[in-house]
Amino acid sequence: MTSKNKWLSTPYIVWSVVFIIVPLGMILYYGLTDATGAFTLDNITAIASAGHAKALRVSLFLSLVSTLVCFLLAYPLAMILARMQTKRHNFIILIFILPMWMNFLLRTLAWQTLLEKNGVINHVLTFLHLPTLKIINTPAAIVLGMVYNFLPFMVLPLYNSLAKIDVNVINAARDLGANHFYTFIRIILPLSVPGIISGITMVFIPALTTFVISALLGGGKLLLIGDVIEQEFTRTSNWHLGSGLSMVLMIFIVINMILSAIFDKDGEGSML
């Protein structure tokens, strides 16, 4: 507990250097060299080639849409949950973590069964004499898969930052004459910024870089940037190109990290 115990941090520092810093250095090394080990920027500029640029564009678009949908679904939910009794805190977190105990691939696969032309949802819709859904193997299904998988990562930070707002701060705004809308815009929303930033980061990055969801729900028709990188490593074994493209992805990741460092200094928007 005192400064003489500093050596206690050694195992973790060593671990971080070996398994976090050095591996990122490896990506930089591979990304900036070719097969002969000579310096090159080709692996990075490869992102501009028609196929890669399109994959990046599609990924960016789909992940932005997913993040937005997640945010719009999660914010009202988090507000409702945050105003419930605080002793239910752990229970609320459990509800959103529990699905992770069912394998992520299987859960996503189950959406095929739900969404298919003769799937469960369409059976229900037909029974209700409603028009059927035709979204399987479309970008819409990919967005749905992303929203489904990453929604908890939006809800939990939002819930945590909203639950931390003192009820009396909201009461004070009302007391000073603010109506519900003004209170929301000027008080609740700004105070939840750490949660919003953290939630966006936790959804946007995995959505941008996923390579499984598109394969399972998009019918393999759309190639996302994650699919491209995965193939460079597992099939074509062009690690240099794969690393170069990863470095492009890391630009977005770094932007996100900087944003969270600015807006969430104390880790108030953390998930747990």
Partner: peptide
């Protein structure tokens, strides 16, 4: 991103 963490460790 998990994919970046994954390949960085693989390269290591």
């Amino acid at each position: 991103a998990d994919i970046v963490t994954g390949i960085s460790l693989m390269l290591l």
